[in-house]
Write a protein that binds this DNA or RNA. Structure first.
Lengths: 230, 230
DNA sequence: GACCCCTGTTACAGCTTGATGACAGGCCGG
DNA sequence: CCGGCCTGTCATCAAGCTGTAACAGGGGTC
C-alpha cells in the first residue's frame, strides 16, 4: 500500500501505453492501464488509485467528461489527475487546470518530466507517496531505492518495516494511532489487530538499532511518534 | 476521550460512508457511522459524540427532524452539528442554519473542506477539540504531538494529566467545576468521584513543577482555574 | 478560638497498556 | 520440494496509570 503508488493510466494508443507502463514502473509506480473512460470508471470503482494519468482524446466518453464526472463524486473528488494532451494549443484551449485536473503534460513529453510532475502532484496531496528521499538526523530513507541508512551505514528492513518507517518519517513529531498506521500500511479494507503494530514497531526498532530507540517514541494511550530531535 | 474527537456520521450511502470514515480517521477523528436517524439517536443516547455529521436526506426520520429533536433536549442542545446536503440552493442553506445546525456543506464536497469546517465548529464550541497548539506564558501544549513544554523544556505527563491540562489551558481564567472537568475527560455517562479530580490536579501540578503551582489555581467551593498571569 | 467544610496528600489495589518472545502459516527463491 | 524469510497473532510479563479511601491540614464563619 504505502510501498508504491498505484497509477491508473487511461490511454488508447498501444505504443504510448507501453512507453508509460515501462517508464512508470521504473519510477517506480504500480501501473494499471485501461483504454477507455468507461473502463477507467470501472477500475476506480473497484479500487481507488493514488493518481490518474488521463489522455484527453479517447474513444467514447472524453477525458474532459471523465474529469468532470470524477470531480462531481465525493469519493473521487480529491483524486489527483494529470491530463495528457496531444498539442500545446489544446492545453491552452481546455485550460487544463480549469476543468479540474491537477496538472497536464503535452505530447511529446519526456518520461522524466512526466514523472516529476506526478511527484509534484503527489507531494501536495499525499507526502509519503511522492517518492522523495526523507532524511532526519542521521537517518536517511530512499523510497525509490527502498534503502535506509544511518550514518552512511546501510540498514536492512523487511518490507512492512520499511513502509512503516517511511510513513513515520513522513509525519514527524506527530502522535499517530495504531489505526492510522494500519490504514497507511494496509489500506482501510483490511482488518487486523491493533496490536500487530506493536510488533512491527518492535521489529523496526530492533532493525534500527540504538538510534531507533531514540527516534520512535511510544505515546502512551495513543500510539507512536517519530521524533525529530531525541 | 479528549485525545481524539468522536464524530458520529449519519449517512446512508455506503460509498460516502467509506470516504468519510477514511478521511476523518486520517484527520484524525474517531469515527462512528450509522445509517439512520434512529440509530443516531440510540448511539447518542449511549455516548455523546463531540460532533455530528448529518446527511439531510435519510430514510425514516429526516435529518431536519433529528436536529430539531437534538436541539430540544438539554443534553444535546449544544452538540455541534454539521449538515450535509445534496441540494445547493439557497433556501436549503438558510433552512439548514435556521433549524439549528452549526454549519453545512453541499455535495459534492472535498474532505479537506469538510475537515476545515469541522475544526472551525469545534474551535467555537469546544476549543480543546480543535487540535490547535495552545500556548500560555511559558507553557506550550501541542495536541497533535501530545507534548508539553515549559520554556522549551519537555514535560512528561500521563494521558489523563495531559488531557486535563489541555482542557484547562483551552479555558483559561475561568473557574471550572469538578463535574465539568470530569465530563471533559471521561464523557457524560461515566460516574466517578468528584474528588478524583483533586488527585489529578495534584499529579498535574507535580508534573508541571514550580510553574504549575502558579498557573493552576484552586477556586474554593467551586473547582479549579487555569490563570494566565501568575 | 472552636468547629466544620473543603482541599491537599498519600497509599494502595486493580486494571490497562506496551514490550517481548514464541509460533504457525504463507510466500518466495533456489 | 526444501529452507528461509516474512507476517500476523497470542500469551506473558513489567511498567505505568487510575480511581478510591483515609487522613492531615487550613480557612472561614460565627
Amino acid at each position: 500500500m504505502s510501498s508504491r503508488p498505484r497509477v491508473l493510466v487511461v490511454e488508447d494508443e498501444i505504443a504510448i501505453q507501453e512507453l508509460l507502463r515501462y517508464s512508470l514502473e521504473q519510477a517506480p509506480f504500480e501501473v494499471v492501464v485501461v483504454s477507455s473512460a468507461e473502463q477507467a470508471l470501472s477500475e476506480i470503482r473497484s479500487e481507488l488509485p493514488s493518481l490518474v494519468l488521463l489522455d484527453l482524446m479517447l474513444p467514447g466518453m472524453s477525458g474532459i467528461n471523465l474529469v468532470r464526472h470524477l470531480r462531481s463524486q465525493e469519493r473521487t473528488r480529491e483524486l489527483p489527475i494529470i491530463m495528457v494532451t496531444a498539442r500545446a494549443d489544446e492545453a491552452d484551449r481546455i485550460g487544463g487546470l480549469n476543468i479540474g485536473a491537477d496538472d497536464y503534460v503535452t505530447k511529446p513529453f519526456s518520461p522524466r518530466e512526466l514523472i516529476a510532475r506526478m511527484r509534484a502532484v503527489l507531494r501536495r496531496r499525499s507526502p509519503h507517496l511522492a517518492g522523495d528521499v526523507v532524511e532526519v538526523g542521521a537517518l536517511r530513507l530512499d523510497p525509490q531505492a527502498r534503502t535506509v541508512s544511518c550514518n552512511q551505514q546501510a540498514i536492512n528492513l523487511a518490507p512492512t518495516e520499511f513502509d512503516l518507517l517511511h510513513y513515520l518519517m513522513s509525519h514527524p513529531n506527530r502522535a499517530l494511532t495504531r489505526d492510522q498506521l494500519l490504514n497507511a500500511l494496509r489500506g482501510d479494507h483490511v482488518f487486523l489487530e491493533d496490536r500487530t503494530i506493536d510488533v512491527y514497531i518492535r521489529r523496526l526498532r530492533a532493525g534500527l538499532g540504538t538510534a531507533g530507540e531514540a527516534m520512535i517514541a511510544t505515546v502512551r494511550g495513543v500510539g507512536y511518534k517519530f521524533v525529530r530531535t531525541p
